[in-house]
Design a protein around this nucleic acid. Structure first.
Lengths: 109, 109
DNA sequence: CGTTCATTTCGATATTTATCGAAATGATTG
DNA sequence: CAATCATTTCGATAAATATCGAAATGAACG
């Protein structure tokens, strides 16, 4: 993970509908959800959702696969973990700051 | 942490100079860095940096304090951890998905 | 193999965001 | 208390992003 990958990923998540979509997919797990299901649950037009799903996919945060007539989207957990690791990289210059930031050391090394 | 807090935080990080600034501060640790030092290191105009620092602060990702003539900015590690936790909340509906996503379970519960 | 249906693309518009020099601010220091 | 200096605000401009209906796409099903 580098800044050129992290910026689109963060930007993809920094929007109401995309964040809601992503969290829905995180909670859905590897099975994912059909685009239409997401549109219905979030009550947003299909064309708007398609725009947002494309950005999440472009950022590498979600994968897509076809199932029957539907396109199923699923969160890419490896990408999420890479992003979280990137944000905490070299935390406190490698010093111990576990007390102040429990997850801080997770991304170090 | 909720979406209304997470969106500005993610948006704050989704920009080249702000992400670079934030990572600099994560690595600097609790001591933080003066605004001028950051501007010099990143080679961006003071007014531009001020604009970006204001957004990071508004999003709650950094704190500011005065030291002599300088204003010192420091990463807020608690805010970072809250954000990371929010992104992994209710991962896989609580099922075990540790193998696919090491950090996934960290934010559950 | 024509129909159906979920999804995506298009297009036009409105909104938000980034940039940076110049000027203002305001706390500090001698 | 005047001068200095780091930082922020202002203002004007450019660029990127969000919205959503209508039309197009194209895979699937009978």
């Amino acid at each position: 993970m580098n800044a050129n990958q992290a910026i689109p990923a963060l930007g993809a998540l920094a929007q109401e509908h995309r964040l809601a979509t992503y969290r829905l997919l995180v909670q859905a797990g590897p099975d994912g959800l059909a685009a239409g299901t997401i549109a219905t649950r979030l009550a947003i037009p299909a064309s708007s959702l398609s725009f947002h799903l494309a950005q999440l996919a472009e950022a590498g945060l979600v994968s897509q696969r076809r199932a029957g007539r539907s396109v199923i989207y699923a969160a890419d957990f490896a990408a999420m973990n890479a992003l979280l690791g990137f944000l905490t990289e070299n935390c406190c210059a490698g010093e111990d700051c576990t007390a102040a930031a429990p997850l801080c050391q997770a991304g170090a090394d």
